[in-house]
Design a protein around this nucleic acid. Sequence first.
RNA 1: GGAGGGGUGGCAGAGUGGUCAAAUGCAACGGACUGUAAAUCCGUCGACGUUAGUCUACGAAGGUUCAAAUCCUUCCCCCUCCA
Length: 325
Amino acid sequence: MANPAGFTFRNDGRWIGGGRRVQKDLVLIVAGPTASGKSQLAMDLASRLSGVVINADSMQMYKDTPILSAMPSNEDMETVPHKLFGVLSSSKRGSVAGWLDLAVREIKKTWKDGKLPIVAGGTGMYIDALINGVSPIPEVEAKIGEKFEHDGLREFDIESYKKLKPGDTTRIRRAYEVFAATGIAISEWHKKPLVKKLPEAEFLAVKILPLKKDLEEKISKRLDMMLEQGALTEVLRLMEKDLASDLPAMKALGVPEFSAYLRDEVSREKALELAKVHTNQYAKRQITWFKHKLKADVILQKCYSRAEESVLKKIIDVAQKGVKL
RNA sequence: GGAGGGGUGGCAGAGUGGUCAAAUGCAACGGACUGUAAAUCCGUCGACGUUAGUCUACGAAGGUUCAAAUCCUUCCCCCUCCA
């Protein structure tokens, strides 16, 4: 399906040749835990491969926390095209499907422009949905405020009742929502084949899987830096919006911790420490996800810094091979 | 100097003669994950052993007792109040 003919590299590593510079169906995925350098890698690849970076990070979708969510700098965004960063208001509730629609649109547009879509981010579920598809469940009304009992599942969805742990409030809620809206149990829906939104695409995935230990120092320093860059002001402005605390944007790492400090409930040191701990825990969850659930063509075992030629070359090589199926 | 309170597993903090290797929370470690996913949840968590079990543990040292983290004595340290 892919056509490598006409593709070659110049000394400077750019794709050249062919009427189109990249064949139509290739999507490059760059996945990795927070602070692993994936944004930098995506950007470096984009600048060599005439690519467009498309965000696959749930929190970088929101516009009010560019610092805390470690969004690429304005300078970076000017150097290389970046899409889907800061496109959602914090008062909105993002979702896999919402992201997927936007991402698919951006990918198609990128192809049309003859460029290479580079989907980069740390939200495993988003990337998984893009590559493997989503369940064909129609959009259902979110019943966020309500409380749902695990026991009640028995009455309409025995399978979910057995599968879901009583404490798993998020999934229990979804089971209720789906049944209420469709009359069909979510466990039944899940038996239907996944629907790929981009069946014509060929995905080439790069995953960064550093040791958690190697991430700790980077995470710590990055959080220190975020404070210097004005993370507290960012949080303060968010607080002024007086949004519901269960909104995704309000749960972004650092937001609950620093709001507690700004409300004078904990010391600044304590808030910082907690933010670091929680970020490390998050990184671990991401590593677990990517390690087990994302099949990758290239695996980097340590963090990426910037302009690491050997790494870039390796990925570009694999990309070239990967394309000539 | 006087009066009181306290020292428990990496931390916080229950326990106050046996059912205690010691509740619970946090951290740590591992895992899951199909429309909130930076979410949500699950497992492990003194050491050795697959299990039975063995050993070392509740500030230190002695003692009482069949049996002590729990009672007694002395010592060390911490906190509060009064001087």
